[in-house]
């Protein structure tokens, strides 16, 4: 989708959602992002309650950009990576903080990508980039639509390069993402956000 390639500026938040097969992708992207970044990165992935802190620990170890352990009402600031804790929905507040919610699981998941994407779109509008990775369910599609409607940019992992293609395929089918990219391209894309 080269034709609609454009410079992305004034981005405040990049939100990345994924499910099965997305961890490897994150590990091929996040460690290669160099400090400082002029936006915040928020990660919302489905995972088991039992691997509570392992994702945070792994990414904190590997990435240069500092990973924040998300607690309720933590300030969302450019320059950091925030990871949605397991067993809570992650929401965005007007005051530029993150808040947590234990309401019912949606399609057996908490957090859900749709809930966080919708909430981020409401607060950040056109200053938001949403990226949807590998997964084997339909979570994320509604969220991607919300981001588009609010004027944000959407990126879907190329289903061919995804370990589980259902989730990216579903989003491509029901929304018209601005970009469909494979893993290296997603990394390059993120590096080009907000050029000085």
């Amino acid at each position: 989708m080269e034709e609609n390639k454009r410079i992305i500026k004034d981005c405040k938040v990049v939100i990345i959602g994924g499910s099965a097969g997305s961890l490897q992708v994150l590990l091929q992207i996040l460690p290669f992002i160099e400090n400082p970044i002029s936006f915040a990165i928020v990660i919302v992935v489905h995972r088991k309650q039992s691997d509570e802190q392992t994702l945070e620990a792994l990414l904190a170890l590997k990435s240069q950009v500092k990973v924040i352990d998300v607690e309720d009402k933590v300030a969302l600031k450019p320059g950091f990576i925030y990871i949605a804790p397991s067993n809570y929905h992650l929401l965005f507040e007007k005051e530029k903080t993150l808040s947590l919610d234990t309401s019912e699981k949606i399609n057996y998941s908490r957090p859900t990508i749709d809930v966080s994407f919708e909430s981020a779109a409401e607060i950040y509008g056109s200053a938001l980039v949403g990226i949807l990775l590998s997964g084997s369910n339909s979570d994320g599609t509604i969220g991607m639509k919300a981001i588009q409607n609010a004027g944000g940019i959407t990126v879907v992992q190329n289903p061919v390069s995804a370990e589980m293609s259902f989730m990216p395929n579903n989003a491509i089918l029901h929304t018209q993402p601005d970009y469909v990219l494979n893993t290296e391209e997603i990394l390059a894309f993120i590096k080009e956000i907000n050029p000085d």
């Binding site: 009402k73 929401l91 965005f92 507040e93 007007k94 808040s99 919610d101 309401s103 809930v115 909430s119 409401e122």
Partner: peptide, 9 residues
């Protein structure tokens, strides 16, 4: 109350 959750509810 935190608005994001309340609004959804």
């Amino acid at each position: 109350y935190s608005r994001a959750s309340l609004k959804r509810r």
